[in-house]
């Protein structure tokens, strides 16, 4: 009859070997500079609750008067555009240099000290991608400037008054679309393209098609 080897010496050696492989893995691994800190679900939540995301042009007034020292402005445009004109006191970090280690460290430092970072480019859209990126990698102190540099440039002398202006706000319907789109209709407006569209959805492919 059979017996099992009772001394786990070989087991120990194998496990030590396994441990060594893991140690080697730790040594050789490339540590990414940035990781996603929040899940996709949390990201959609951030996008819905906009209060923490944006920075209004009239809020700039306090920053420029040095009343609000807790805000750092970062200009994402290239050096040339920055040289042509920028918001006073803004730091220039061209968007493509954002992942440089020193810039990431700089942002990390701001986050640690509780300083808000306001990103801006020519318009809101140009800064939007970078902003959403930084939110996803864990910089909850990063905001974007509504209206962007273009709006600031046009109103830099009367920033306080822009409080009542909403022309820089994005995402709201500027027109009564339905009425407008049918205004020239020859007959009835309700006949529009409101038919259900038949799209063939991509069927979920079962991964285990040939499985059990």
């Amino acid at each position: 009859m059979h017996v099992h080897e009772l001394n786990p010496k070989k087991t120990l050696w194998t496990l030590i070997l396994f441990l060594l492989v893991i140690v080697v893995g730790f040594i050789t691994m490339k540590r990414p500079l940035l990781n996603y800190e929040i899940s996709l679900q949390q990201t959609t939540k951030i996008l819905k609750d906009t209060s923490n995301n944006c920075f209004y042009p009239y809020q700039l007034a306090d920053v420029l008067n040095h009343k609000n020292k807790n805000v750092v402005l970062i200009d994402l445009r290239n050096k040339y555009a920055y040289g042509l004109g920028h918001i006073p006191g803004a730091k220039s970090i061209p968007a493509f240099d954002l992942t440089h280690k020193e810039n990431v460290d700089l942002l990390k430092g701001y986050k640690k000290n509780g300083v808000s970072v306001v990103l801006y480019a020519d318009n809101q859209l140009a800064a939007d991608g970078a902003w959403l990126f930084f939110r996803q990698v864990g910089f909850c102190n990063v905001r974007f400037l509504l209206g962007g540099y273009n709006y600031y440039k046009a109103h830099k002398d009367n920033l306080e008054q822009t409080k009542s202006d909403d022309s820089y706000l994005k995402g709201i319907a500027r027109f009564d679309y339905a009425r407008m789109a049918s205004s020239k209709a020859v007959t009835s407006a309700s006949q529009k393209q409101k038919k259900p569209v038949v799209f063939h959805r991509r069927k979920k492919v079962a991964v285990a098609a040939g499985g059990c």
């Binding site: 996603y36 996709l40 990201t43 959609t44 996008l47 809101q124 859209l125 939007d128 991608g129 959403l132 990126f133 996803q136 994005k170 995402g171 709201i172 319907a173 500027r174």
Partner: peptide, 18 residues
């Protein structure tokens, strides 16, 4: 698309992440 490009752009970023 959305009312402006902003929301659509954010959706794009999410999709690209995925």
């Amino acid at each position: 698309f959305s009312n402006d490009a902003i929301l659509a752009n954010q959706a794009w970023v999410l999709l690209r992440r995925m």
